[in-house]
Design a protein around this nucleic acid. Structure first.
Lengths: 186, 186
DNA sequence: CTACAATCTTAACACTGATAAGATTACAGC
DNA sequence: GCTGTAATCTTATCAGTGTTAAGATTGTAG
């Protein structure tokens, strides 16, 4: 190894960063701790000083991506001037996030997130939908599940080439979401 | 090995069957060719006489599950007396299939199916939706994507304990699907 | 400056997918 | 029946993986 670098100094952060890059390019399936250690110029056992095991490492990567995702949703809500268009805006944001990082979708929603009820982006979406739907609270539970399912399913669809035209993503998602009507508000 | 069993006689089929069982119980992530070979009482290299590699094996398993899925959808359509309720019935069937085999969802839709446009169950669903929507062909494209997204997203939701009450799955899915209205038909 | 904790390396283990070389068996054609 | 060929299987063997143990190096608090 290089002289004077026995202590990397920033290994944990670098591994997470390299992990994000790798997942974004090649997906999490072929990611290995050894490759990341190699890329960081460190021995194959070094990562285990910072992470209990591979799963714990991937959990931290997941949390980082979730943070980015949540930030995008928060920003989208903040920039929404017409509250009647809130769900549309959030839906587009939701789909757009995974359209730009298709492999993130697979990484997150393949067993890693196994409790939507407490998953922050879903909680955020749920809360925004409740607020948006306050006129008709009776069946809001089902409406929210319907809305979330549609947006979430759309996100998966978009991660696959050819089904949705990603060059005009906002228009496409808008057209799809507008093609169904939600209660009196839709 | 046991005497007189040098030629297994039915190894390919048995491996696929054991693969289905394994994925159903533990998921595809931890499935290994060696474990299946062991379970079939055969050496670790034997499977490679029948499958080019692990991926080709999983593809055959995928095709089998897809066949079962398609069969369920076909059966559901056949048993639909009131055509106006067709999409509801197919949606319930779609969700129910993965509710009964949650790990199949993860196996199928985690990179293994990467072209919905030609994926038989989706083509089936699309065709049924088109027929159902023939009154308003103008925006049928978007309506179909909206419907499929919702049902598909719902299926994922159901594979996770707690979000949807699987004891009353049909009612729940019905309530969710009915909470949005599709054009004049919905 | 010293003890301790954090960090890293080296070496090893079991498990994985995969291939090559050779053994065994089924079977078609004679 | 016999024989040759193809299919099937076993026995090594390889590189790659996650992970741990033991020990070396270094930052840092006292």
């Amino acid at each position: 190894m290089k002289n004077g670098t026995y202590h990397h100094g920033n290994l944990k952060a670098e591994l997470i960063e390299k992990g994000l890059e790798y997942i974004d390019r090649y997906g999490a399936e072929s990611l290995s701790m050894r490759k990341l250690a190699d890329a960081a110029g460190v021995s194959c056992a070094a990562p285990y000083a910072h992470f209990k095991n591979k799963d714990a490492f991937l959990d931290e990567v997941q949390e980082y991506i979730t943070g980015q995702f949540l930030e995008a949703l928060t920003e989208s809500e903040k920039n929404c001037s017409d509250r009647s268009q809130l769900m549309l805006g959030l839906g587009i944001c939701y789909v757009k996030f995974f359209s730009e990082n298709p492999l993130y979708y697979r990484f997150l929603f393949n067993g890693r997130i196994n409790d939507f009820k407490t998953y922050p982006p879903f909680v955020f979406f749920e809360k925004a939908a409740e607020e948006w739907l306050d006129a008709k609270p009776a069946d809001s539970h089902y409406v929210i599940l319907a809305l979330w399912s549609m947006v979430h399913g759309l996100a998966q669809m978009v991660t696959i080439r050819g089904v949705v035209d990603t060059d005009h993503l906002e228009d496409e998602v808008g057209s799809i979401m507008r093609s169904v009507r939600i209660g009196e508000n839709g």
